[in-house]
Design a protein around this nucleic acid. Structure first.
Length: 496
RNA sequence: GAGCCGCUAGCUCAAGUGGCAGAGCAACGGCCUUUUAAGCCGUUGGUUCCAGGUUCGAGUCCUGGGCGGCUCACCA
């Protein structure tokens, strides 16, 4: 047996036994703290007067020991909880020779400790807890990642996120930010009178988006169910039912490729607002996103990948066609004529099987030519009808729908439209999708008879929108991959 | 799924064209009462991702596989 990981673990297990022999439970059931570390640090941030600190009395704190500096009969360490970190000082003369040598000196970086003592400042001015009592709260049995470089290995960071969070401050910051973003979205929508609802994640007919679903099986009912690709059709049923403003914030699942912008399960907020149209949602979206930036980062000007992005409204608004023409440099005859578009797409080496309808071809060209140009927040609106089977036609132009997508940092973060509430038109659109599906488009929508039936009971004029939370967090947190914004991204299992 | 890159001690990283696999941190033993990447002395630690192959000799070259990253392709 060498001194590899097993040996290190053995050493730590030996200490564990040594504690037990001393009558110390290395995993006690409870420990009462008087304050969080953050509260103490905040409260005495400015206090440098020794007697004032001493007069503040004793504090009982707990946290993970993140560093340890033994100096013979005196030792310094830092302990950290979720609110902050504080230095502690342990003296043999104070806690007694026995406790100091047999307990404190056997502690390891990574152990959870409970400490009680008064505050003071060291020679260098650091606020420090002078420990009177120390309690082991949980013993580590594996060494933590190195303190200076942290955990760099991306695979380990994703697989063992807990280590990433222990070792890397930046990672902790990203996920705290994510939490604030989600809270901010809830607060915003509830402030506007939206009610939060939950709709099925397991659906007999997966609808609301063009995507391949995951399939599962319910044994008792003996039916296949699909993990939802979107909550859309259920949410609009609720608007039919009279909930004029609803939203759902949760996971969706799409059985497709993985990339820096795609995870098989991802978080989306969808909201529906009766008596609003897509233009009103643009204004709402600007208000939401600029407010989130201010609330979480304190600024509407943010940095992403070294580039400055200004999230202060109003955002640029450009029609789908104009975006192709002016941003993408796509010739007008391509935009106006399907055959030209087909030829143009072939020259761009877009796969033949995607060149189905004119709108779809333009969509493909858009993704290649326009999307990569949209660094600053931009609403692209008025999309082709045939790639928007749930959106309402534009008045005066039956080839277009009232739909927009919001792009920030060259990523699609939101998709919204004035909802199609004409049941007869909806049925026709579904039928057109079914034809696409028959031609081999696995992502085409399926017929949902009950949804059409619901529309027949009457959906008021309504606008709806979905925002990709993970991508929004990526942008606000300035991280390059969606995996950096998801705590446990989908990975192949270890030892395949 | 395809192309490119990566995988070496618990962690972070080294090992010109094939030639004894190393350092720092961590760990272990010792010294040390104001340190904070504490310091000093000493010790230990390896299936170099896996399986084959070439070779006197493979971390290094070849083949196959695994896992990850990036790019491409697709949905947000």
């Amino acid at each position: 047996m060498g001194q590899g990981k097993e040996k290190i673990r053995e050493e730590l297990l030996k200490k564990l036994e040594a504690f037990r022999e001393l009558g110390i439970n290395p995993y006690p059931n409870r420990f009462k703290v008087s304050h969080t570390i953050g509260e103490v640090v905040e409260r005495f941030r400015e206090e440098t007067d020794t007697t004032a600190l001493k007069a503040a009395g004793e504090f009982t704190l707990a946290g993970r020991m993140t560093s340890l500096r033994l100096h013979g009969r005196i030792s310094f360490a830092h302990i950290r909880d979720y609110t902050g970190s504080i230095q502690i000082l342990m003296e043999q003369d104070v806690v007694g020779k026995d406790l100091y040598n047999r307990v404190f000196k056997k502690l390891d970086v990574g152990d959870f400790l409970g400490v009680k003592g008064a505050l003071f400042r060291t020679r260098t001015g650091e606020l420090t807890l002078h420990v009177q009592e120390v309690t082991l709260l949980s013993k580590v049995l594996r060494p933590l990642p190195e303190k200076w470089h942290g955990l760099r290995d991306v695979e380990l960071r994703y697989r063992q996120r807990y280590l990433d969070l222990i070792a890397n401050e930046t990672s902790r910051r990203v996920f705290l930010l994510r939490s604030k973003v989600i809270q901010g979205i809830r607060d915003f929508l509830m402030g506007k009178g939206f009610i939060e609802v939950e709709t099925p994640m397991m659906q007999p007919i997966p609808g609301g988006a063009a995507a391949k679903p995951f399939v599962t099986h319910h044994n008792a009912l003996d039916i296949d169910l699909y993990l939802r690709i979107a909550p859309e059709l259920y949410l609009k049923r609720l608007v039919v039912g009279g909930f004029d403003r609803v939203f759902e914030l949760g996971k969706c699942f799409r059985n497709e490729g993985i990339s820096t912008e795609h995870n098989p399960e991802f978080t989306m907020v969808e909201f529906y607002m009766a008596y609003a149209d897509y233009m009103e949602l643009m204004a709402l979206t600007e208000e939401l996103i600029s407010g989130l930036a201010r609330g979480t980062l304190g600024s509407e000007e943010i940095s992403y990948g070294g580039q400055v992005i200004d999230l202060k409204p109003p955002y640029r608004r450009i029609t789908f066609k104009d975006a192709l023409l002016k941003v993408g440099g796509v010739p007008a005859e391509v935009i106006e004529d399907e055959r030209n578009a087909r030829v143009y797409a072939r020259e761009m080496e877009i796969e033949e099987e995607k060149l189905t309808t004119h709108g779809k071809i333009l969509g493909e060209i858009f993704d290649k030519r326009v999307e990569p140009m949209l660094l600053q927040p931009t609403f692209v609106y008025d999309y082709p009808l045939d790639i928007s089977p749930l959106a309402k036609c534009k008045e005066g132009d039956p080839t277009l729908v009232e739909r927009f997508e919001l792009f920030i940092a060259c990523k699609e973060v939101a998709n919204a439209y004035t909802e199609l509430n004409d049941p007869l038109d909806q049925r026709k659109r579904f039928l057109a999708q079914i034809k696409e599906r028959a031609k081999g488009d696995e992502e085409a929508h399926r017929m949902d008879e009950d949804y059409v039936r619901a529309l027949e009971y009457g959906l008021p004029p309504t606008a709806g929108e979905g925002i990709g939370i993970d991508r929004l967090v990526m942008i606000l947190a300035d991280v390059p991959s969606i995996r950096d914004a998801i705590l446990f991204p989908t990975l192949r299992p270890e030892r395949g």
